[in-house]
Amino acid sequence: MKISRGATITEPGSTSLEETGSWRTFRPVIRYEKCIRCMICWNFCPEPAIEKKEGENYPVANPKLIKMPVPVINYNFCKGCGICVNECPTKAIDFIREEK
């Protein structure tokens, strides 16, 4: 096991090696056909476990939005708090109990 002098950490952002997805009891699932790509869920995700991705290959609520980026949930980190579900203006995110 490695340590560092004075416990200084020189690997920035390395908690991303520690996945927190197992904390989840409910899983948010984005229904892209209802998603207007407003990114409010991305704004408010505390992990952050919602990534901004190119949207062309995702279903779309309105063809005009196809060039817009989409929110994509990274389940490795999503703790299932449900903020995205609660804040989504079009109710496009389902919240489904995780099967154990």
Partner: peptide
Amino acid sequence: NYPVLDPEKPATFGAFVFPEHYMDI
């Protein structure tokens, strides 16, 4: 000769250390 607070080389000082490392440090 030690890491410093430098935006070019971000380092974390004063982290929370658990029993698995504290004693070694």
